[in-house]
Amino acid sequence: MRQDQFILGVIVSNHFGVLTRVSGLFSRRGYNIDSLNVSETEDPKFSRMTIIVTGDDYIKNQIVKQLSKLRDVKKVELLPADATVLREHMLIKLDIKGHSISEITEAANIFRAKVIDFNADSVTIEMTGESSKLDAFIDYAKTFGIIELCRAGALAVKRGPGALNGEYNED
């Protein structure tokens, strides 16, 4: 996470069009989404979004308030970077022609990544971690040659027992 990024946890109604409403709000107000992840929660009526945004305090403030105005948005919380567990997920397919398989499995082990597909010419690796770790592995993997890369947006929950809290207090 860069200093100018922030993390939003958002609970929304789980029905069609909600993703468009949320992403449309960002684009029409000129805010940049760095990553967005959405999936159903334990209650199928709701989905949870984790959104990483670049912006200053003004944008941060406006995004929370504008999101709160959407009828389908049930809770919005800014997750504190220093008290939040943040994970990304990645599948990366590498060209291993001219390299030994042990070379790549060793590297995967160091990064605590898993080999999930493998043949004479390529290997596919699954990896979870903070963005910086994924970035570091991608950098290293360039020595092999990246055939394709698929990276999911960050998932985030606060540390400790509390759940997402959407209470808005204007004072």
């Binding site: 003004y58 406006q62 308030k65 504008q66 709160s68 204007e170």
Partner: peptide, 17 residues
């Protein structure tokens, strides 16, 4: 009445919705 209007165009000294 709309909290999103507070400090949107002008920073106020104090504001409330």
């Amino acid at each position: 009445i709309d909290p999103a209007e507070l400090n949107k165009n002008i920073d106020s000294t104090i504001s409330s919705a």
